[in-house]
């Protein structure tokens, strides 16, 4: 019921509070509910508790990273010599709950010069635009911010020796 209300509110915002589109709104909200049910059946839902101060600290961080990411890629694209040296880098996650990991994978796509290209278990394969930049500390910082926002306890780093997997084509 809470979800139905949330989807209804989203529709109401999208149509700017007009009342003559409520039939389409009910259909759209019902379809969204159905899609959500389908997703819940493939993966058991995990309750998410959002830490409000953590969220408020995450928003400016995220905006800053978005600006840096956009400026960085535009600069490289417009540069005469196209200064890129892409690489795939395995990165072991310390986030353990599924919602936090999903949020991380999506947030990395918007961070400067990287995105998650593959994801198996607790290891992600990050595609970076410039292999000269050490991205691991930045990914750790992003994880820490997401952990604070989603109320996940800080987890000790990946144990040495349990190495990340090789890229799939090797």
């Amino acid at each position: 019921m809470r979800r139905a209300l949330a989807y209804g509110t989203a529709w109401w915002v999208l149509v700017e509070g007009r009342s003559d589109t409520w039939v389409a709104g009910i259909i759209a909200a019902a379809l969204a509910l159905g899609a959500r049910r389908l997703l819940d059946r493939t993966a058991a839902p995990v309750p998410v508790r959002i830490d409000v101060p953590g969220l408020l600290r995450f928003v400016p961080f995220f905006l800053r990273e978005s600006v840096r990411g956009g400026v960085d890629v535009a600069r490289r694209a417009l540069h005469r010599r196209l200064p890129i040296a892409p690489a795939l880098i395995p990165y072991p996650l310390t986030l353990r709950t599924r919602p936090a990991q999903i949020f991380f994978v999506n947030a990395v796509s918007l961070a400067p010069g990287m995105f998650v290209a593959a994801w198996t278990g607790d290891v992600v394969l990050v595609h970076v635009l410039d292999s000269g930049v050490n991205v691991a500390p930045r990914l750790r910082a992003l994880e820490a911010r997401i952990a604070a926002m989603l109320g996940e306890p800080a987890i000790p780093p990946w144990p040495p020796g349990s190495g990340p997997p090789a890229p799939p084509w090797r």
Partner: peptide, 23 residues
């Protein structure tokens, strides 16, 4: 321009997602 100049699907994704999101 990044979409046109970058060499493969992965690098083009960088151009599309980051520059367009900021725009």
């Amino acid at each position: 321009i990044g979409m046109l100049r970058f060499p493969d699907v992965y690098t083009r994704l960088h151009a599309l997602t980051k520059a367009d999101n900021l725009g």
